[in-house]
Each structure stands twice: as C-alpha cells, then as structure tokens.
Design a protein around this nucleic acid. Structure first.
Length: 839
DNA sequence: GAGCACTGC
C-alpha cells in the first residue's frame, strides 16, 4: 500500500530542494503519506547527516501512531531508530534519528537547549492548523537558523496552500506540491438563504432526504453537544429505526466515542462536533451534512476573559469537513449555507496566536531574552493589546520587572509547564506549605474535565460524597482521591460519572509537577493544610478574578474591574459572598445571549484580601470618596476598587456615598447600591426605547417626573418589573409600563418584545435609540439589516434583525467601542441627564 | 431555567 503513496514521486525533488535551500514548503493534503514518508526520505537520502529529524505533530495520538508505523516500515524497535516523545511518555534513545514530538515538547526543548544540538532537521507537520506552539516554534527555529544554526533545515508541511501569508517569512524557500489520494466529493450549497428554522431541523431534513441516495454512513457536523442532541431527536423523528444514530464529541466517555468511530453492522449516522474534523477519522462515510458552524474559543484581552461563541467556519475548514465524505469512496457534502455566503467566509481559521491568552508564550519569549516583543519574528503578529494584557498580567504575578525583563520569580515560574497563574500558585504554596495540593489543583485543570455531565441522580450522589467544601477544586480533589483509591477502575468511576482516563492523567501530572517542585527545592511533604491556606494560594494566581455575589439569592456576581458574571449553579462556593474564580468564560446561551460564567470558584474572605494586598485596599478606601468636596472623584482603576466599595457600603448604610448618589451628584451606575441604579436606568431606557421604535404602542417618553417616581419606587425595594407594575402608589408610572408589557414575549425576560411587524427584538440596554447614532454605529461595523443596539456593561451587542432571519448577534469588546462610538453616546446622555456628574 | 469546541507542555 505504501508503495503507491503519491509522496514517493517527490523524493528526489525533496532532497534536491533541500540541497539548494535549507527551507522547504511542502503542500500536500492529508492522505498523501507525507507524515510517514518525508522523514524517511530525508534519512535514507543522507540529508540528515549525523543529526536527528524532529517531526512536529499537533496531537499526541498522531505522534505515537506515526512513530509506530514508521518503526514497523523500517523493521526496527520503537524507540530505536524511530521514536516519539509526548508529555509523560518518552520512547526514544540516543540512536533515534526520526523523533515524532508534540509541539509543546519542542518548545520546552528549545528553552533547555536554545541551539538544539544534534538536531539537523525540523519538520512542521499539519502547519495549517496554526496552533500557538507550532507558530512559536517555527518563529524560533527561523531565528535560530538565521543566527547560530545556518545548517539547520526546516520543512513546513501544510494541507492548504495558504502559503501566500507564510512565504514572506520563509523566503527564500523551495516550494513543492503533492496530490492526495482521496476520492472526489461533490459539494452542494443551499440554493437560497435558509428559512428561519433551527440548524438541527435543516440538518435532519438534509440527512433524511439523502438517506436512500447515498450508500455509506452519514456524518453531520454540529457546533456542540446541545445541537447534537437536538439533531439526533429530529433524525429519530424522520428515520425511526432505519439506522443507528450516534453522537460524537470530546466529553463523551471513550466507550461511546468508539461506538461512533468503529465499524458496525448496518448503516449509521454520526452527529459530531469538530473532533471528527481533524482528531478522529471515520471510514465509510459517503455523505457529510455540514452546519457550517463551530464553537470557537477566544481570549478577549480588553476584558481579560475567555469567550466561546458559535461562529461560521472558514472555507478551509469546510473543505476539510467535506473531505471526510471521500476517504473510502466518492461522496457528497451538503452545506447548509449558500454559495454566496461561502464566498464571503474567511479563507482559513484565525491562528491561535490571534485568539488566545498569550501570558505563557510571552513569559517563555522573555526567558529566551527577547526584549522587544513587537519586533519578534512572528509568523503572524498577535494583537498589540493581547501582548500588553499578557505583559501586565505577568507583571502583576511578579514574573516581569517594570522594565519588562523576566524576574527570578518569573524564571522559577517557567519551570512549571502550566499557565503562569498556576505557576504563581505553586510559589505561593511554598509559603503556605501546601505544594502537594497545589500540584493536584494545577493537574486537574490540565486534563479534560474530570466530572462528566451526568443525570441529576449521579450529580446528587457525587455531591454527597465529594461536596462539603467551599471550593470547586476541593470537590475535584476529593473525586480524584476517590478514583485513585480505586485504582482508576472503569466501572467504579463510571458509576459516579468520573472520567477514569482523565483522573489517571491528572494523577500522573501531579507527580510531574511535584518532581519539578522538588527540583526547585519546594517542600512537597504530605500535609493536610486547612482549606483557607489553599484558597490563598489560588488567590495569588487569580487576584484579578475576585468576585462578589450581588445577593444571597442570586448567582449574579460583580467581578473586579467592573465585570459581571454568573456563578455556575452547582458551584461549591455558592454559600460564600466573596469568591475567586479560576475560570471565566463567556458563552452563547441557548437563547442566543452571551453569558459570563464563573467556574472553578473558591470562597474567600475579605480579611485575606486585606492581608495579601494591603496596598490595593488602602488606596481604594481612601480616595474614592472625597469628603472635602462631598463627591466621588475619579481614580485610576485599582484591583479591588469596585468590590471594596460594595463591601463598605454593605457595612455602613446609608453612608456618604449613598447620600451622594441619591442626591444625584454621582453618575447613576457608577456606584452599585444594591442594584437600584441599574434597575432604574434600565426601566427608563426600556420604556423610552419601546416608545421610539414602536410609535403605535402609544408610549409617551418618560419625563423627569416619571423617572423620579420610578426611581423612588425602586429605592423602596422594588427590584423587578412586576413590583413596579403591581405597586398601586404610582398609577401614572404604572399606566406607562403596562402597554409595554403586552408586547413582551416572556415575562421572565421583559427585555424581549415583539415588534408590530411580528419580528422579535430585544433590549439589554439601549442608549442609542437616536436613529442618527444608530446609523453611525451600523456604518462603523459595516452591517446590513435593521439594527438594534444593546449594550451590556462590558460588551456591545448588536442585534440585527434582517428580514426573515433569526436575530444575528455581533459582540465587540468595548475597547473598540469606547474609542470610536462612545463619545457620541456620552454627549447624548450628558444632554439627557445634566444633573449627573460623569466620571 | 439551564447553560461549554478542540488540542497541548
């Protein structure tokens, strides 16, 4: 079989090209045999000299399997001439000439030995995936080649010819192309824009109507587990028991995944996430139905949180998905979007370096002596604001000095192969004498989730056995200990919804971290520290993610730096009013709204904050309220500013701050006094907004007097729409609000309403009912369609209601928003609320 | 009233 590999036709050209030039770009699709053959061509052609060829792989499984196959082809023992190295698993020796490694391994090697002694060639496989570690290793390898190692040869292999942007970095370089050996796949786009129906319905329709026309299995791509479950339900309605319908996604237990991937009697339909796009291959698929959507992780440097939204996939990604229908026979791919939509999609996915948190990367570059990050040889330069964010976090963690140079603490942190936040936690653990526990916590965050999503009964049982602490980490730690005591036995673990393989992996990682800690001289003896010592360690790494519950009955929290989020429902930190979240992720809820979720939370106490960060506290308390002027003055944002205000206000009601606020001297919303400010403003805006966009509702705009009525009402304790409506004391305000309610879609979500045209709309916060302003923003973002603008506190959400489409949502960070559009909104508001002081 | 893609040191 390997004799027919297309790559063989290129062997002489590859060797000749590398003789002419030490850089080669090889474009070859999956299935061309490049991953197994190119290293052998180099070795057998004498291109390696006495050195070793390192082959970079994006996935552990691939690194191991490729090494195994090549060792077999060469009839040598794995770990001899051919080997592999992945985390915690090194099968190589001094004799190894071809070494398959995952991308992070090479980066660690470069830190330990910057000139890569003994390496003659590096092959970057699957480079088109553009992982962060792959990008950085190529940059550093090019740097090395240009400075100390002109003999080093670099081969970049990529499935797509997105070489346009890559070539300038590699030039001068040789370029070669090879064909794949896949079967043709016919691609069908929708002839017209899709109707207003959920994607799982269109997908089920497409799969069901082609079920008889295609001979093999069907693969449906969906963005996530929820959509998968809905699709499966729809398919069952349409096809009944005519075939098996199986889900496939990363959080599924291995046994379920095997069922979807493996061979089976009879036909099947697999409904999968992106795992089936690159990581898992399924043979026998002849029809792919592609929703064209995926959940994409990004890091928002302006807010310092991670986001996970459903986005349209790129053309390259769609091609990769389509290719899954042609592995064993000619196939077909139905795309649930139009050709017109397709032509406007991005050519390839945004590289990770433009999407992810760069703290760890920046720290390693600083350690390599790179002072000026802007002039580093980026394959694709990251956003300056992302670099700045990373540097400021590293500075806060004590890893970088004021001049941007790495500190001794930073160098110690770098020894731990984890995000700098967790590395910082390790160093704090030394002082708290709980290194063992810190190692466990860090390990638990490095594996895929230990606790599987389970039914209510299993979750209650887990709560019974592992609950009782004030930290989500303590639940995970107990679950891991429990699994370890049972030797990670599959049956035991499954009964409590514990992912046995994750538990085993976490346990081994803990050992790795403990070894590193011992090497650094940290005490790793077995202690059983009180929970609060551990909480302080977590706080050291996540001081900028402290949150305060708004009230005992709600999961809503204020997070430092003016952010907001929801504590996860099942959190162990639910009883704490002050907490630190190790994970802040903004996701797209089922109703399409963005929601910030606080995960991996730990309850903390204000006294610890005061002890650990006395400076922050001092400054916030002293300067925020200027007694001599009896007003609040602007201060540079400090770490705990917002939260300290709240804490103080709870202690001392009504206090001078409250009086100032009530007297209208302070901008409403700048101070949060039990939420009344926001509530008032939002109600006023809602009514005014409704009145403007739906003139036929007959809602007169609220004047000063009505506004005052509502404000007083809310001050008296009303917190929601119903309270206002039911209050009999203010009939005028009530009569204004009632018609508004008739147009509400859902009384639990009063901001949703129906336009007279039948379209649905939604207001979160609308400062821009002014049509002129609306047009400006529309212009600014370059959007078509009718536009409504909703501003949450930290993100600008645009709801676009194009004819016969579901609302489309575009969220932008406020950074862009502030500089471009805010001044105009502010002017408008200042005119509207002249009595308020703006800070 | 519950919410979350995929990798990797």
């Amino acid at each position: 079989m390997s004799a027919s590999l297309p790559i063989y036709d290129l062997d002489e050209e590859i060797l000749a090209a590398l003789n002419r030039c030490p850089r080669l770009l090889l474009q070859a699709p999956t299935g061309s045999g490049k991953s197994t053959q190119v290293p052998q061509i180099l070795l057998d052609g004498g291109a390696l000299g006495n050195g070793r060829c390192i082959v970079l792989q994006p996935r552990r499984l691939a690194a191991r399997m490729l090494a195994k196959r090549v060792a077999e082809e060469r009839a040598c023992a794995l770990g001899g001439e051919v080997g592999y190295q992945i985390r915690l698993d090194n099968v190589s020796s001094r004799e190894t000439r071809i070494l398959y490694v995952t991308e992070g391994i090479l980066l660690r090697q470069m830190l330990a030995d910057p000139s890569l002694q003994g390496v003659s060639t590096i092959v970057f496989d699957e480079f088109h995936e553009r992982h962060l570690h792959g990008d950085i290793s190529l940059s550093r390898a090019l740097d090395l080649q240009a400075s100390r190692r002109p003999d080093l040869r670099l081969v970049v292999m990529s499935a797509t010819l997105e070489t346009g942007s890559l070539m300038p970095h590699l030039a001068p370089a040789e370029v070669l192309r090879s064909e794949g050996r896949a079967f043709p796949v016919e691609i069908v786009h929708l002839p017209y824009e899709p109707r207003d129906e959920p994607v799982w319905e269109s997908a089920a329709d497409a799969a069901a109507s082609h079920f008889e026309k295609t001979p093999g299995d069907i693969l449906v791509f969906m963005p996530g587990a929820y959509e998968i479950q809905r699709t499966i339900r729809e398919l069952q309605n349409r096809l009944g028991s005519r075939c098996r319908i199986l889900p496939l996604h990363g959080e599924l237990p291995a046994i379920e995944q095997d069922k979807a991937v493996g061979r089976s009697h009879g036909r099947k339909i697999i409904v999968s996430t992106n795992v089936a796009e690159t990581s898992l291959t399924i043979d026998g698929v002849t029809l792919v139905v592609d929703s064209g959507l995926a959940r994409i992780a990004r890091h928002d440097p302006a807010r310092g949180i991670n986001t996970l939204f459903i986005e349209k996939i790129s053309a390259a990604s769609a091609d990769q998905r389509a290719g899954r229908a042609g592995r064993t026979a000619p196939g077909m791919c139905i795309r649930l979007w139009t050709a017109r939509d397709h032509s406007r999609r991005a050519l390839s996915e945004t590289p990770e370096i433009k999407r992810l948190d760069l703290a760890e990367t920046v720290l390693s570059l600083k350690a390599a002596g790179i002072r000026d990050l802007e002039s580093f040889r980026w394959i694709e330069p990251p956003e300056p604001v992302a670099l700045a964010r990373a540097e400021s976090l590293l500075h806060d963690l004590g890893a970088l000095a004021v001049d941007g140079v790495i500190t001794p603490v930073g160098l110690r942190m770098l020894q731990f192969p984890v995000h700098p936040r967790y590395a910082r936690m390790f160093l704090e653990a030394e002082a708290c004498d709980c290194v063992r526990e810190a190692a466990l916590i860090a390990a638990l965050t490095q594996t895929r989730s230990l606790l599987l999503r389970s039914d209510r009964k299993t979750e209650d049982e887990r709560q019974e056995i592992f609950g009782g602490g004030t930290s989500d980490f303590s639940v995970l730690m107990r679950a891991l200990e429990w699994a370890r005591e049972r030797d990670f036995r599959m049956a035991d673990c499954r009964a409590l919804g514990i992912h046995a393989e994750s538990a085993r992996q976490a346990s081994r990682l803990q050992e790795q971290f403990l070894q590193i800690a011992r090497d650094l001289g940290l005490p790793t003896g077995a202690t059983s520290p009180p929970e609060d010592r551990l909480a302080r360690c977590i706080l050291a790494g996540f001081a900028d993610q402290v949150a305060l519950r708004k009230a005992a009955g709600t999961l809503l929290c204020d997070i430092v730096h003016g952010r907001r989020g929801l504590l996860t429902r099942q959190s162990a930190a639910q009883d704490a009013s002050l907490l630190v979240a190790a994970e802040i992720t903004e996701i797209e809820g089922r109703d399409g709204d963005p929601k910030v979720l606080l995960g991996l939370a730990t309850g903390i106490e204000e006294a610890w904050l005061r002890e650990m960060f006395p400076d922050d506290f001092q400054e916030s308390a002293e300067y925020l309220f200027d007694k001599s002027q009896n007003r609040v003055v602007q201060r540079r944002s400090r770490r705990f500013r917002d939260l300290v205000l709240e804490i103080r206000d709870r202690d001392a009601a009504p206090g001078p701050l409250a009086s100032a606020c009530l007297a209208g001297q302070v901008r409403i919303g700048a101070l949060r006094l039990n939420g009344w400010d926001d509530a008032v403003e939002q109600w006023i805006h809602r009514v005014n907004f409704l009145g403007r966009i739906c003139p036929d509702l007959g809602l007169p705009p609220l004047g000063e007097e009505e506004r005052e009525h509502i404000r007083l009402l809310v001050c008296e304790g009303a917190t929601c729409y119903r309270d206002i409506k039911d209050a009999s004391v203010l009939p005028h305000a009530r009569s204004l609000l009632e018609p508004a309610q008739q147009h509400m879609v859902d009384r639990h979500a009063p901001e949703r309403f129906e336009l007279p045209s039948g379209r649905r709309a939604k207001i979160v916060y609308s400062e821009s009912a002014d049509p002129h302003l609306s047009a400006r923003i529309q212009d600014f973002f370059g959007l078509d369609g009718e536009l409504r603008i909703a501003q949450a506190r930290h993100a600008l959400t645009l709801h676009i209601l194009a004819p016969s489409q579901r609302p489309v949502q575009v969220t932008r960070s406020l950074a862009t928003f502030w500089t471009e559009t805010y001044p105009s909104i502010k002017n408008q508001l200042q005119r509207q609320y002249p009595r308020h002081e703006w800070i």
